[in-house]
Design a binder for these strands. Structure first.
Lengths: 199, 199
DNA sequence: ATGAAATCCGAGTATTTGCTCGGATTATTG
DNA sequence: CAATAATCCGAGCAAATACTCGGATTTCAT
């Protein structure tokens, strides 16, 4: 059974830099070579540290990936929270546009990295903290939708998240870079989903 | 460099049964254990044949997966073709409903299998034949959409496919089994996407 | 029935991969 | 400047994995 929680806390600045280097190295390898290319020796070499050092802070390979995914989810949650604050007070249509835009924020920063991470998440035993983050994201969207009188807001939140994720994934895979246009297209689908339900 | 095209054609009935057993074993392992659990020894054992036998028909592990994915894509293409034949003559909304239903046909047969396969496809070097199948699927949808005067039908086809895939994936992951309800929800999004574009 | 072709077997090989351990190096403290 | 704690190193081990090979067994054609 592979441990997932970190093994030891870095106390000195040097050690903190090491941890960060390891994470970034793992992320880079994941983007360039996909999950099968992600092995501990490669991570250590890319990070410029030795395997032994790596294992002082991460108890297993999976733990590195888990922390990477957790970071991404935390970032997403922050993006969504900002989006909701921005959307407050607007009508449903513009609120949806703003929320979709917020969901795509991490794609704007690093589209390939975001995609690689989301795919990697699938083949990882879900750790409790990341699961909680995902639930909070959905709950946040559901709460917003409920404010507009949407029926079954939880289901709608899940559907809209999935819709966004799916379309973004395909767009990135196709090499699209105009995220404003993509946001607009996703918002059209989302608004259609929400408004067609009421009549 | 791993070969992907099959190594030898089975000539006798026994050999054909072996090939089929290998494929089904691989599919089952993929569903129950995910990509990391898919190794040649396990495949051979599950299929009830020896590794040596396996390697007489498949030049590499990837070749097995590739053929599995190819089969699934071929099935999807057939489903979509039937869907289009059924949709012909109806108005846009019912046509969309029928097409979404057709796209989900393989999910109805084996939801977990379909999902496992689609995820596995991502970490596989795209082989030419499968790529051609995917293109044909998109082209078919695009052609249908063009008949209804949709602008940029290729892009719309890609977006709608991605939308369907994303929502279906999330629904299956959440344990949903009512595919009629799911079809209806996806269709709402799709119709919204298509109709909001025109005004 | 008999030779040839097809199929099957599974122990074994070469490689990869996750991970450990004992000791060297660097930082911190009193 | 010690002495102690923190950090780092990397050779190497144990296990897993993709794949091969030589020969046994079964099927087919005549």
């Amino acid at each position: 059974m592979a441990e997932i929680s970190p093994r030891k806390q870095p106390r000195q600045a040097r050690a903190r830099a090491t941890c960060e280097a390891v994470k970034q190295a793992a992320a880079r390898i994941l983007v360039t070579g996909g999950p099968p290319a992600l092995n501990t020796n490669a991570i250590a070499e890319t990070a410029g540290v030795s395997v032994g050092t790596l294992y002082q802070y991460y108890p297993s390979k999976q733990a590195i990936l888990a922390e990477l995914v957790r970071d991404m989810r935390a970032g997403m949650l922050a993006d969504i929270e900002r989006g909701r604050a921005q959307a407050k007070g607007h009508d449903l249509r513009t609120a949806v546009r703003l929320m979709v835009g917020a969901s795509l924020h991490h794609h704007r920063r690093d589209a390939l990295g975001a995609e690689a991470m989301e795919r990697a998440e699938a083949e990882l035993p879900m750790d409790a903290e990341t699961d909680a983050l995902k639930r909070r994201i959905i709950a946040l969207v559901a709460e917003l939708l409920a404010g507009y009188g949407i029926a079954d807001p939880e289901l709608a939140a899940r559907d809209l998240s999935a819709m966004t994720r799916g379309m973004a994934q395909a767009a990135v895979a196709a090499g699209e870079t105009d995220f404003d246009a993509l946001t607009e297209r996703i918002a059209r689908g989302a608004i259609g989903y929400l408004e067609t339900g009421c009549n």
